[in-house]
Design a protein around this nucleic acid. Sequence first.
DNA 1: AGGGTCAAGTTTTACGTATAACGTCCGCCG
DNA 2: CGGCGGACGTTATACGTAAAACTTGACCCT
Lengths: 338, 338
Amino acid sequence: MARGSTRPTSRDVAQAAGVSQAAVSLVLGDKWRGRVSQATAERVRRAADELGYRPNLAARNLRLGHTRTVLLVVPALTTEFFAGVYTGAARVAAEHGFGVVLYPSPEGIGPARNPFASAQAALDGVIASSMAADALTAIRGDRLPLVMLDSDPEGSLGAATVNLDIADGVRQVAAHLLGLGHRGFLHLAADVPSWTFEVRARELAARVGAVPGASVRTARAAIAVEDARDATQAALSAPGPRPTAVVCDDDKLAVGAYKALRRLGLRVPEDVSVTGFDDLGLATAVDPELTTVRLDAELFGERGIRALLAVLEGRTPDGGDVPVELVVRGSTAPPGAS
Amino acid sequence: MARGSTRPTSRDVAQAAGVSQAAVSLVLGDKWRGRVSQATAERVRRAADELGYRPNLAARNLRLGHTRTVLLVVPALTTEFFAGVYTGAARVAAEHGFGVVLYPSPEGIGPARNPFASAQAALDGVIASSMAADALTAIRGDRLPLVMLDSDPEGSLGAATVNLDIADGVRQVAAHLLGLGHRGFLHLAADVPSWTFEVRARELAARVGAVPGASVRTARAAIAVEDARDATQAALSAPGPRPTAVVCDDDKLAVGAYKALRRLGLRVPEDVSVTGFDDLGLATAVDPELTTVRLDAELFGERGIRALLAVLEGRTPDGGDVPVELVVRGSTAPPGAS
DNA sequence: AGGGTCAAGTTTTACGTATAACGTCCGCCG
DNA sequence: CGGCGGACGTTATACGTAAAACTTGACCCT
């Protein structure tokens, strides 16, 4: 850290402008109306400019007792979904003078001893995805105002929660496929212990179970294309009547399903219909384009930050799930539409 | 978190343990050998534990004069490539006791006046992707130690740079396709003013130009599937001999090319070969799987943080580009291999 | 003349931490 | 018995900022 010349402080600016440090703080903090003359203010600003002065944020944060910075904890960066969450959160936060810093929950990053190595920044609050499970215990210890995303309302111990209306998404998928005439379903489930996936399974079973003659089989796979492909292939090769629709917990899983079906010589959607969840870029990259449930990641992030801001101000965040929408594309059709 | 109770400070811990604040700092900072008795140290630790004490990082950063936190500036979060860069950087940083905070360069986030709203954290240094152009000017003003990723070595004014060996990647692509017998090329170029894309164009022209009878036509598109599709379709519908290979600056562009070719009734790779760049998840999601240049994002991030740490310690970062590797899959074949 | 108001600053203080500098007590050696 | 060096702490200070409390002089009103 061989700083030959250390950064200028407000005192340096004061000296250069021939005023006291306090005056500099007033001028640069825009609190000088009636306290400092126009001319002096101008002089201070010019001095600050010439020295290239930037306030020391550590000092400011210490003085102010807050940072106007919140942390967004996400399970991984590999999905564009959380990019959307960040974008929405950052936009609204900026409108309120807050910044958002990202903490991708580590997977082999750093000693588990301090999963917060990335967050040396002093923080005012935390928004955490329930999927970033490993980071959650550490977060608890910090006693910071917390908002959980997509978390079991029961399991989040008083922390405010903001949830996507996953159940409704599943209802829409089920209604769409049942309406097309499908009765035999394969649920390709994400093998991740998370509330949002439990909801999918529960709701799908309920909807399909309500229709006479309809049934759901389940296959599990990690959220990775190869794993999903193999799981699907195994499930579809099993004895018994073959499902005519594969409902996937996630677009990535759906891509795996595509590959399995191609291997088995089955066509999408003529032989088997496939649906996804998320509406990532993947969904329109594949052929045929994927019928999937669009999650509005930006809106989700927006609602998350609004809830956290509410908590910070001592208000109760407004409830209500974030709506989702089925997007019908080319991967679904009536069964046996050869 | 009601404002009633504020977080405990080291002084609170001291009082609870019946010692001075300095003793607490010594014990918790693990600097107490020979200065504090074993018993007292234990007492302090227990008190800290019971109060749930966490040091105030703003205060610590102010005292220490540094934060052991660096910023990684990326153009956008939508690509898994930068997720890899982050992962590599964060791992190595953690090994050195540093944290990494992400700053996705804003696209309509916050007032342009302060693009650093997200970075309220006090920082020790910055690693910036050259593609995050809009954030760069602001970074300059902060006079922080800086490492540029994939930047024109001439244009980065003394800042250390770490580059991927893009030129070599293009060489490998050209050699592969020329070896298969292709002579007519369409270069589907990213319409983004960035050094890394200029290199692709320059190198491809040079390699193909060296072969008698070979030539390159160019189409430009934003890095988005639809735009790439339309640009490709237009270029391939133009008069003159049709190219037999489409070389794309990016995997996403390649997906657009796939769609255009399908529309035109041309098969990949029998009628036209396609190559990408990056090796994202997309590359193996499409059918046929994409021949592309794999960029080792994690290694890239690793090299970036190593360079920055070197700068922080006053050393000169070691040079040398990060190697890349052509991955041959199903989207390339000899021309006219019907 | 005397007080009051106001502009235009300055002096001072506190935020919470890390650490340099300073006591004390006690045992031990020459 | 004087002094000396640990062991075990404590006291004091600085980091850079924001803002409350205070000072000074000029001007105005009655």
